[in-house]
Write a protein that binds this DNA or RNA. Structure first.
Lengths: 194, 194
DNA sequence: GACTATAGTGAACTATGATTCCGCTTGTCA
DNA sequence: TGACAAGCGGAATCATAGTTCACTATAGTC
């Protein structure tokens, strides 16, 4: 029985288990960032100073671990969007800042890059709930900017998601002249109302 | 010694070898399209009605096979761009049609999708020459549209490449509401001069 | 301090799929 | 048509990396 199943049954985790759970997630983030998504479970275990068995006690498969990381990241994005909605300021600029911040996060996280690049569909699929939450918030941010007349009226939240998939997928291959910072600014500007 | 090395030495291929070379590429295209890039070499061999050994005689590794497919596709794109440059008509529309046509090709080719999604960097890297050729032609197409005042003046060829990476990467994951046709039209429209 | 359920360990197991290799077949050419 | 180099076939091999499991350690509790 993995610990995640146990969490669902409600029994509280032992202190060391709670500590390791965090440690493993943290290690996974780091290792994936360094070696990409096909980093090995053994590496993650080593980095977390834990046996592989322990990793498997907490996450039944490598994919489950990846999914958890992606979920967390979507939650981070959602939190950023919520903060932005509370802030006042020119709605389009607020929105643009959210995009910039999210792109920066993606640049440092191979797990999310993998989910966004077409290859990780099934992972994305398992983060549905979090994605939809994020999508709702994005819709709201967009609506504001559109109401203010600052954003093209035909942009949907899915367009933003798809554009970010693109930006993120160009981060990993460094073909000559590929500068995602510059490209992102172009994309942002293209979203402005004419 | 693989046949590709032999081609380099100049000796002509035996008739059956020439036939099989084509057959294998064709089969690879089909199998990759059906099963994605992690289709198996055995499957490709079977589809080509050939032993695995033969596949390996023609392409030393699976990656080499993938690279060849990507190269070919870049050449197809380049050919399309050349035709477009000869056509007369409103330059922006000519350009937009090239994008639409290329996107359609991508939608049916897992190898190119893989290369474009960040995961296949190294494959992309081995198709440098073809990519650069394509890039030069894209630059010319863009320049025309910009001279005609129909396209944003700050768009570079790499932006187009990056946008297409994005569109292509969204083709594979079918998250709810992801409609790449619609999205592509938005992207095209965003490229118009204001 | 003893007891026990919970958690951790890592060597061994397994599955998968790429690649090799060698005996056999076939195109080519004199 | 015979010789032989070029090609082919596919079972066997190898490598990789995810996953398991029998055993040990330890947090929590009385």
């Amino acid at each position: 029985m993995t610990i995640s199943t146990q969490i669902e049954t409600g029994r509280p985790l032992r202190a060391d288990a709670r500590r390791n759970h965090e440690r493993i997630l943290e290690a996974a983030r780091e290792v994936f960032a360094d070696c990409g998504v096909d980093a090995q479970m053994d590496d993650i275990a080593r980095r977390a100073c834990v046996g592989v068995g322990t990793v498997y006690r907490h996450f039944p498969t490598k994919e489950a671990l990846l999914v958890e990381l992606v979920r967390q990241k979507f939650r981070v994005f959602a939190a950023g969007a919520r903060t932005a909605l509370e802030r006042d300021g020119e709605p389009f600029e607020v929105f643009a800042d959210v995009l910039r911040r999210n792109a920066d996060v993606c640049a440092r996280d191979a797990a999310i890059q993998h989910a966004l690049s077409g290859v990780g569909e099934h992972i994305w699929a398992q983060a549905q709930a979090e994605y939809e939450q994020l999508n709702a918030l994005t819709t709201e941010l967009i609506a504001r900017a559109q109401r203010a007349g600052a954003m093209r009226p035909d942009v949907l939240a899915t367009d933003i998601a798809m554009l970010m998939c693109g930006v993120s997928s160009t981060m990993t291959h460094n073909a000559p002249g590929f500068d995602w910072h510059r490209h992102l600014e172009l994309v942002i500007d293209m979203l402005r109302a004419r």
